[in-house]
């Protein structure tokens, strides 16, 4: 639901990056979205399309890299799980598991045109 406000923040930051590097047009933006970031990659892409209209990022590609959360046993290390399912306890030793990562919501890369020409 807050994908639009995230897309606006992203536009502000990427325009800053563009200005800093003297670029003319944003071609591709790569972001990291974690399983626990409460963000739907598809909706973020739609929001990006909408907020970039009439901006130097219009028509740019938003690439989303998805990061699942990990469940980690304090003695046995990371355990196997598939996104969306959770193991109550470690399958090997029965200890409670910590949830780690999956809260990524980061800008990774910005690809842009210099001199107004597309390569």
């Amino acid at each position: 639901m807050h994908e639009a406000s995230l897309a606006l923040e992203l536009l502000k930051i990427t325009q800053g990056v563009l200005a800093e590097h003297g670029g003319s047009r944003i071609l591709r933006v790569k972001v990291a979205v974690g399983e626990l970031s409460a963000v739907e990659p598809e909706l973020l892409r739609y929001a990006w399309e909408a907020v970039t209209l009439e901006s130097p990022a219009q028509g740019s590609v938003l690439e989303v890299e998805f990061f699942p959360a990990r469940q980690v046993c304090p003695t046995c290390g990371p355990v196997q799980r598939s996104p969306g399912s959770w193991l109550p306890l470690c399958v090997s030793c029965g200890a409670p598991l910590r949830v780690e990562g999956g809260d990524e919501l980061d800008l990774l890369e910005v690809e842009f045109d210099v001199n107004g020409e597309k390569s």
């Binding site: 930051i13 919501l105 990774l108 910005v110 690809e111 842009f112 045109d113 210099v114």
Partner: peptide
């Protein structure tokens, strides 16, 4: 010509 900037920062 295109360039890629490595940014690595939180969106928020």
């Amino acid at each position: 010509m295109s360039q890629t900037a490595d940014v690595r920062m939180q969106i928020l």
